[in-house]
């Protein structure tokens, strides 16, 4: 189902090069959502991305949070959807809702 070739390998390469890295994973979706459960996005400390967790709707917000996770190492669960203020800003145009788990690669 997942192909770690792209995302996880890139994450490992970044880490091996001494960069801070966070991994975002879609853990649940409701209604329409562009990427299925299990989709992953790796982010390095400069904000570079590999993979995706949406059709580009929430990546910006996820990267912002990912930089925080890289700094403090605390994993978190992000909610995106119409009830979420952040989602209003970044816009899940599909009207769906999703949860994204963010963790730092140690």
């Amino acid at each position: 189902m997942q192909d770690p070739d792209d995302v996880l390998k890139r994450a490992a390469d970044w880490r091996a090069a001494g960069k801070g890295v966070a991994i975002a994973t879609v853990v649940s979706t409701w209604g329409s959502s562009p990427r299925p459960v299990g989709s992953q996005l790796a982010v390095d400390e400069s904000g570079a991305m590999a993979g995706s967790v949406s059709g580009g709707c929430i990546e910006g917000a996820v990267v912002t949070e990912a930089l925080e996770v890289i700094r403090d190492g605390r994993p978190r669960l992000l909610d995106f959807g119409v009830t979420n203020e952040l989602a209003w800003e970044v816009g899940l145009a599909c009207g769906g809702k999703m949860q994204v788990y963010l963790e730092r690669l140690e």
């Binding site: 192909d3 770690p4 070739d5 996880l8 390998k9 994450a11 490992a12 880490r15 991994i23 963790e103 730092r104 690669l105 140690e106």
Partner: peptide, 13 residues
């Protein structure tokens, strides 16, 4: 995620 876990996932793949 620990590096060992990531390395195992890549090796399993």
């Amino acid at each position: 995620m620990k590096r060992a876990v990531l390395d195992a996932l890549i090796a399993d793949h």
